[in-house]
């Protein structure tokens, strides 16, 4: 079985995987990082979004072996101890979630979006979250949360 070496949330990890093992399965099943969700299994919903080398990607649409040698950040890697990341805090503050299933993917997409756009507009956020589906909130509060979170990240 192929061995993959990754840096996950700042820690070096090594794991034996099948070639067909998806990154999301390695994270959830072998590394116990169950914050990254699988919502659809058809690469559409974005609940599994993580950062690979600083870019938001769908962990269900990337083989673990493809990510060999990469730096991976999951939702568990955002907070510093008990202090939430500004984007997480903004989701809480602005009621950007209801059931919370899509939230890890939303937050990871939003953080990457904010890092790449110094002055996010509402239009940027709505377009930028095109690959993240929420079945509860109707998106409005999510958009408000991302705008506030992006602003807080700049401070």
């Amino acid at each position: 079985m192929p061995t993959v070496n990754l840096t996950v949330n700042g820690k070096a990890v090594s794991a034996n995987v099948e070639a067909r093992t998806l990154l999301v399965n390695l994270l959830r099943e072998q590394l116990g990082l169950t914050g990254t969700h699988v919502g659809c299994d058809t690469s559409q919903c974005g609940a599994c979004v993580v950062h690979v080398d600083g870019k938001s990607v769908k962990a269900c649409t990337l083989l673990a072996v493809q990510a060999n040698g990469s730096k991976v950040t999951t939702i568990e890697g955002l907070a510093s101890g008990d202090k939430l990341h500004p984007m997480q805090e903004a989701f809480r503050e602005h009621h950007g979630l209801q059931c919370g299933f899509c939230t890890p993917g939303m937050v990871m997409s939003a953080v990457c979006l904010a890092q790449n756009h110094p002055n996010l507009t509402e239009k940027d956020v709505r377009e930028g979250l095109e690959g993240n589906l929420c079945r509860c909130t109707g998106y409005h509060n999510i958009v408000q949360a991302v705008l506030a979170g992006a602003q807080a990240m700049r401070r």
Binding site: G46, S56, L113, G128, G131
Partner: peptide, 9 residues
């Protein structure tokens, strides 16, 4: 094309 996550790969 697609969404941001798709465009990254």
């Amino acid at each position: 094309i697609g969404d941001r996550q798709v465009r990254h790969l």
